[in-house]
Amino acid sequence: MKELIKELTEAFGPSGNEDAVREIIKKHVAEHVDEVRVDPLGNLITLKKGKPKSGVQSRKIMLAAHMDEIGVIISYVDDKGFLRFTRVGGVFPLTLLGSRVVFADGSTGVIGREKPEKRDEFPRMDKMYIDVGAVDKEHLNRKVGDVAAFVRPFVDLGQRLTAKAFDDRIGCAILLQTALELKTTPHDVYFVFTVQEEVGLRGALTSAFGVEPDVAIAVDVTLTGDTPEAHPMAVSLGAGPAIKVKDRGMLAHSGVKNWMANTAERLGVPYQFEVLEGGTTDAMAIQTSRAGVAAGVLSIPCRYVHSPSEMVDYDDVQNAVKLLVGLLSGPVDLG
């Protein structure tokens, strides 16, 4: 699964520019599902049809992971060919200094900064620029509107992994692996790879409207409280995938939450409960689609979220797959 994670995280895909990621996922998912389609916004919607099982109520289940990552977009080109830019999604200026970015065509730029007025001045994005190495404006092949992503190769640290865009390619990898390992299911399972989560859950909004699921689980990253002087939070790397109770955008459906926790206990999969004070996921948009969807979230604990070097624990990732396969193989008990 690490090869797959490497391939996905290293792909280019800021919000609205998910094509390369979608092609990779399509290639891997095709033989494990019965239907594949792309909706008008660019969401990749795949269906694994259920085989009815006596005594088990068949449900329409949507699993969602977003393909997009945060990035930057060129807003202005100056006379010397330096590029001013703004954020696509929640980019922190601090993480930009010293970074390299890559454009859709593979060309690279480095991020520079104007001379700060004070030595310890907090860096501001409007005081930074991208230098693509252009000798002058005439020889520049970039224009306003071009989008770039961080450059940062995947590194296997053994137990832990680090890469850019674990948010949410790790979710995409988990969905793919689940589709691969799920031999039969009594449910119609929609594996949905969404677009534009980082700019407002926009792909989830439309794909959920189109799919009309009964039950939904978003798979995304969450923050942890296990690093030095971290904000207090009872989530740690390696303690199992986290079952969301609440984040800033939603309260998980208590039935879905309990169904996940009970299944984890039955399977002996470690898990933790998550109360996240900032941020939200695709599940927020799915929950209020049409007349409402029973929606929950399976979170992968992740350090340094929205930086170019995010970190997850490989056991958490594998346990998330194990739990999802378990959930989809049996009855949905929303208590």
Binding site: G249, M250, L251, Q287, T288, R290, A291, G292
Partner: peptide, 16 residues
């Protein structure tokens, strides 16, 4: 339900 966290019950029940 869930008015205090973003009018969610009204949104969905009205749709239904």
């Amino acid at each position: 339900v869930q008015e205090e966290v973003g009018l969610k019950g009204a949104l969905t029940s009205t749709f239904g």
